[in-house]
Design a protein around this nucleic acid. Structure first.
Length: 169
DNA sequence: ACGCAGATTTTCT
DNA sequence: GAAAATCTGCGTT
């Protein structure tokens, strides 16, 4: 990750919580019913790119675009276990945040990693913002309902690392 | 510990 | 006009 226009400082963490938004038939997706607007445009982009959107008049949220170009689907990154650049994360979020909450939530993690709309459409394979492959052993990923939505709230598309101390809420 | 108002953009009704 | 893939600060138990 980097501070755009400022000192580039590496921050990194292990993804411990995500939610999937699986296509135009997903009522909770921004692209439900093939909605195609300036905001949702990036959901239709190439897989392996970032979809970063602004919400609640305040917060940025980071997604990985997951399906073929033209098919709107993405995975919302909801929480990280901070692994590197903790000092930088604390500085970006301010002294107000205890370490346990630095990246516990989609908007918190964006602030800790300096992710903003400037990174919408950026590659997640190379460049300032990267998602690395992991290999969780069978049984350590637990599934549950998605958070903060009403439409399709019961779809089991939230995935967490079991027992992680770094989950949101 | 819990609950709620407030921040104020994008999108749809 | 209102709800939304959220979080914070301040109030009350």
């Amino acid at each position: 990750m980097s501070d755009v226009g400022g000192a580039r400082r590496r921050t990194a963490g292990r993804i411990v919580e995500v939610e999937a938004y699986v296509g135009p038939h997903d009522p909770a997706s921004h692209a439900y019913g093939h909605r195609r607007t300036p905001r949702t445009e990036q959901m239709y982009g190439a897989p392996g790119t970032a979809y970063v959107y602004f919400t609640y008049g305040m917060h940025w949220c980071l997604n990985a675009v997951t399906e073929a170009e033209g098919y709107p689907a993405a995975v919302l990154i909801r929480a990280l276990e901070p692994l590197a650049g903790l000092e930088t994360m604390r500085r970006r979020r301010g002294a107000r945040t205890p370490d346990r909450r630095l990246c516990a939530g989609p908007a918190r993690l964006c602030e800790a990693l300096a992710v903003t709309g400037a990174l919408n459409g950026a590659s997640l394979r190379r460049g300032a913002l990267r998602v690395m492959r992991g290999s969780p052993r069978p049984g350590v990923v637990v599934v549950g309902p998605r958070v903060g939505i009403t439409q399709g709230a019961d779809w089991p598309l939230r995935f967490c690392l079991k027992g992680s101390l770094w989950l949101s809420r």
